[in-house]
Design a protein around this nucleic acid. Structure first.
Lengths: 336, 336
DNA sequence: CCCGCGATCTACAGCGCTGTAACGTTCCGC
DNA sequence: GCGGAACGTTACAGCGCTGTAGATCGCGGG
């Protein structure tokens, strides 16, 4: 018995069949007290631990799910990942975190590698590309997190970016701001999150009879703080200083705030700043940042639940769960 | 042939043996061009993908490694995780990210579950407890990230927290600060990172003939921004306002800076602030934060390399790799 | 023309576990 | 006291792949 003990070793030592040990390990209830004791003893004496690969094989399930997000460096996704992990643990799932980074190759690799490795995938797509791919890999259950429009044939957890954008823009308008810049619109693909947020933004303006100033819609290269910094710099350089800035994500907002501080421009005195995604950091920025706070607990919860239920009923009709948000009003848009 | 195609299906279609297909899939070089073609065709026609569980079983290796850190919500660990993931990919490893949260149960579960699931573990321990456990689970190769003293019988990537602390404290002293508070010392366990950093801090003071003021060493409950905020509040409430604050991690520093800003206390005019861990956020804080910047690239690189090499030589002597750091001096300690 | 060798490919026995089917027993309800 | 359900346990055939050992073939040297 070189190497680690196996089921058969435990069985021999306890004087029962392999399957009985297996039953014990898996919590099968109908085992007599005496057998239970013997098996328990044998396991601890031998230090037996089940081989998960073998278990996966026999069972046809792996006990893993994948959680695929653009990038962990964005705290929003890191926080969401944490929630998904703990929620999935309740379903006895181990979570594999995958970073797609929006790169096409990664997204391909994901769908190539994941089946046979995971029981399901929770995908937070960055663009439609990912969604298409995801829908192609129909073998493995997939839950999409994102906009209602994104979903075609997969379960999904939807959020209403347009409505949220409209509401936070309205908040800025309510506080008297009239010239509002935006940072983070990505023009390259349609139907993206930033696109939707921009629509909501425009809609709010239009309702007030205003029109979004093209020049004040600054794109950001990526989702890093440096991108927000640079974008803010561009706005300042343009000459027409807005009285508010709406950032399409909070990380970029951190960069923008940083730039404003270094330029000595008072927030919110001279410029108000608001953003999407209420990451932990937001409340501690200087000044604290007003955000759209998605209900991340509900997102993680719903996603895992949908996956678990799909596991039971593979052919059930596609389902959709909405999650809410609230405005987290802080000093970046209200203080004097 | 219901379900997904298997090796045997591909073999049948290509008119070769199972093993030949297996060889092809695994890059075995001695395969004739004609065979290669047939197999290739069969694979793509059938859309064959290997079953990783089965492969793990046959091979005795899983293709996974675990990267265990206290928590992903700390951007330092999130960033490090990203590096480890991409570096591990080069070794054809998939990384399982585990959050220990410092909870004993998680740490136990880790060592219980991981063997048979991963080929190795990279552990960034929070306390000695984790290290002890890790060393107990000698079946699976483990690489520790942390202090030299922590390591006993496992490969490790070491950083010199004491030296780093001494150096950044010296920087504060050099800029004329004399009353320095610290935030983040955790008194509960010995040999912890925060403990070591505090030693270095004290050492630097002593070299100048100064003594650390006990009252100005404020503990933090956890590693959240709110903890830093609260700690800073306590310092302010104590009545004796220091002229510098050294935070034992950058997240806590964010909270401290936030509090100072809200109280209208100028940084660095009235109080300088410095911290450990040069997370992306640090450069964009208001004001930008001076930090000890570990060479995270080297950390990830070394850890994965040690694990890979240990894989080849299980009985080789334990090895140790040092990684450096540099001071990232920013406005929080220098501006007017 | 035979031998040895490398290149190419195959047969087959596992890897460690679980599902299924089925066995003997005991426990009920009437 | 009997038929049937529930219980406790077992035997065994896979799950899909890989390692090992070995078969086959062509080729150059002797």
């Amino acid at each position: 018995m070189a190497g680690r003990p196996r089921l058969v070793d435990v069985a021999a030592r306890a004087g029962v069949s392999e399957k009985t040990v297996s039953n014990f390990v898996n919590g099968y209830p109908h085992i007599s007290a005496s057998t239970r004791e013997k098996v328990e003893a044998a396991i601890s004496e031998l230090g037996y631990r089940p081989n998960l690969s073998a278990r996966s094989m026999g069972r046809g399930r792996t006990g893993f799910i994948a959680f695929a997000v653009p990038g962990l460096d964005n705290p929003y996704f890191a926080e969401l990942a944490g929630r998904v992990i703990s929620r999935a643990a309740e379903e006895r799932w181990t979570v594999l975190i995958e970073e797609t980074g929006g790169r096409k190759t990664s997204e391909d690799a994901l769908v190539d590698t994941m089946p046979y490795l995971v029981d399901g995938i929770i995908l937070h797509p960055e663009s439609l590309t990912a969604v298409d791919i995801a829908e192609r890999g129909r073998d493995t259950p997939i839950v999409l997190i994102g906009e209602r429009d994104l979903a075609r044939s997969a379960d999904h957890v939807v959020s209403d970016n347009v409505a949220a954008a409209r509401e936070i823009t309205q908040h800025l308008l309510d506080s008297g701001r009239r010239s509002i810049a935006t940072i983070g619109l990505r023009p390259d693909a349609s139907l993206q999150t930033s696109q939707l947020r921009h629509w909501g933004f425009s809609a709010a303006l239009e309702r007030m009879g205003l029109v979004a100033d093209e020049d004040l819609s600054v794109a950001a290269e990526g989702y890093a703080r440096a991108d927000g910094d640079l974008a803010m710099q561009q706005i300042l350089a343009s000459g027409k200083l807005p009285d508010a800035v709406l950032c399409f994500n909070a990380v970029v907002a951190a960069g923008a705030l940083s730039r404003l501080a270094r330029e000595g421009i008072s927030v919110p005195g001279r410029v108000a700043v608001a953003a999407f995604d209420d990451i932990d950091e937001a409340a501690f920025m200087v000044p604290p940042l007003t955000t759209v706070a998605w209900d991340v607990g509900a997102i993680a919860d719903s996603a895992v639940r949908l996956l678990a239920e799909r596991q039971e009923a593979r052919t059930a009709p596609v389902r959709e769960v909405s999650v809410g948000y609230r405005l987290e009003i802080r000093a970046s848009t209200t203080g004097l």
